[in-house]
């Protein structure tokens, strides 16, 4: 089933066209990698889907009911089931791993619901911490974590939200080879029952993901298909791999 459909979207920043008539569809299960040179518009694409940036034109349609995401505010889009991991790990450094995860857990999000939510969800939190390999770190302030651990915590926070679509921006940046491997496994496991879109620069990382690849260039899709297929495309070699 088609979960997300972006069609004919364009964004201009001060006269500069960052996204140019972009169309892209995501199925409700499985991995998708998005690659492209710096400034290709990968992060901006995520900004549009999550409501951070409003496009000048185009449509973004979501789910079975074909909801128009462009009309929803950020918090509603998140509640609808789109989770996002940022390019730079952004966890709440002043709070513990447990608090970060508890805040992200799927639960009613209104102020009064949150105020009266006093039940400790230790079981769910531990389960997620186990999954991302932070089981021993729950009581640590997340600012003390290593870079790789912060990346996992952020993925854990995504898991806690239990989204239908995960947008993951450069998850392996700054990771050691062992941490990368762990991350690849994690993403593959996650993609079994939800859609995961991964933006990544590192070709080896993308190869290990073993999934359909979309190449972005100057704000639109240059090629799409298996990694071997797109890397043999002369246009792609020109703009991206040739450098």
């Amino acid at each position: 089933m088609r979960l997300l459909e972006v069609s004919g979207v364009s964004v201009t920043f001060d006269g500069f066209r960052a996204i140019d008539n972009l169309s892209l569809a995501v199925e409700d299960r499985g991995l998708r990698a998005v690659i492209g040179p710096n400034g290709a518009g990968k992060t901006t694409f995520m900004d549009i889907v999550t409501g951070k940036t409003r496009p000048d034109e185009g449509r973004v349609v979501w789910g079975e009911e074909n909801a128009n995401l462009l009309k929803l505010r950020e918090s509603r889009i998140a509640q609808a089931g789109i989770g996002r991991k940022f390019q730079r790990p952004t966890v709440f450094e002043d709070q513990t791993v447990r608090e970060n995860l508890a805040m992200s857990l799927k639960a009613p999000r209104g102020p009064f619901a949150v105020l009266f939510a006093r039940r400790a969800e230790e079981g769910r939190i531990r389960g997620i911490a186990d999954e991302v390999g932070l089981a021993g770190q729950l009581s640590r302030r997340s600012g003390e974590l290593s870079h790789g651990q912060k990346q996992w915590l952020e993925i854990g926070m995504l898991l806690a939200q239990d989204p239908r679509l995960l947008l993951v921006d450069e998850p392996a940046a700054g990771m050691t080879p062992a941490e990368r491997e762990h991350t690849t496994d994690l993403l593959r496991r996650l993609a079994r029952d939800r859609a995961v879109v991964v933006v990544e620069h590192d070709m080896d990382f993308v190869r290990r993901l073993d999934c359909r690849v979309t190449v972005l260039h100057e704000g639109s899709v240059l090629a799409e298909g298996s990694l071997d297929f797109v890397t043999s495309n002369p246009d792609v070699i020109d703009v991206y791999l040739g450098r």
Partner: peptide
């Protein structure tokens, strides 16, 4: 500390 990030967690 980071209100934009809180929005993406689904909080208004």
């Amino acid at each position: 500390d980071d209100e934009a990030r809180v929005r993406f967690l689904g909080y208004h």
